[in-house]
Simulated scan of single mutants.
Amino acid sequence: MGGGTLTARTHPFFCAPLPYREMPADLRAELADARVTILEGDLNYRRLVDDRHGDPTTPFAAVVDHFPSPVAALRTLKSEVVVRVDTATVARLDATGTPRRTSGRHAVVQLGP
């Protein structure tokens, strides 16, 4: 951070109950210059992927193509929403019978696009 390679920023939008698809133009312009934006947490993940409860094998890049920079999502699963999990992993985890998407025992790191 001291060398300017990593910058922490904030904006009032980050506290808003809106999906990232609806971010204001000034924030979109600021993030467009970033090499990568790191978003952390279940709520930020849900805002990023439009809180979709669809097919978990949907490619991450397909649902974050609206984001103005490459994005890294760091998240512990605490809700049903998840994308870009391969079919074999979905089947293996579903077969356990445990609430894997909501227990907080699993996490994902996803990069896109």
Rank of each mutant, 00 (worst) to 15 (best):
G3H: 15
G4M: 00
L6M: 12
L6D: 09
L6I: 15
T7G: 06
T7C: 10
A8Q: 12
A8T: 10
A8Y: 15
R9C: 08
R9W: 14
R9N: 04
H11P: 01
H11N: 09
P12N: 02
P12H: 04
C15L: 12
C15H: 11
C15D: 14
A16I: 01
A16D: 13
P17F: 15
L18G: 03
L18A: 14
L18Y: 11
P19H: 14
Y20R: 05
Y20G: 05
R21D: 07
R21S: 10
E22R: 10
M23L: 11
P24T: 06
P24W: 02
D26Q: 06
D26N: 03
L27A: 05
R28W: 07
R28M: 02
A29R: 14
A29L: 08
L31F: 11
A32K: 14
D33A: 15
V36A: 14
T37Q: 11
I38V: 15
G41K: 06
G41W: 06
D42I: 12
D42N: 07
D42K: 05
L43S: 08
L48A: 04
L48F: 03
R52K: 04
R52E: 09
R52F: 01
H53L: 09
D55I: 12
D55N: 15
P56V: 07
T58K: 13
P59Q: 09
F60N: 10
F60E: 09
A61H: 12
A61F: 04
V63K: 11
V63P: 12
V64M: 10
H66V: 09
H66Y: 07
F67G: 06
F67N: 07
F67V: 08
V71E: 13
A72E: 08
A73V: 12
A73E: 10
R75Y: 00
T76A: 06
L77N: 08
S79W: 01
V81Q: 08
V82W: 12
V83P: 08
R84A: 06
D86C: 00
D86H: 00
A88F: 01
T89C: 04
V90G: 00
A91W: 00
A91C: 02
A91D: 11
A91M: 02
L93S: 00
L93G: 04
L93N: 01
A95H: 07
A95F: 02
T96L: 05
T96W: 03
R100S: 03
R100W: 11
S103P: 13
S103L: 03
S103I: 10
G104A: 03
R105H: 13
H106M: 07
V108S: 09
V109Y: 05
L111K: 02
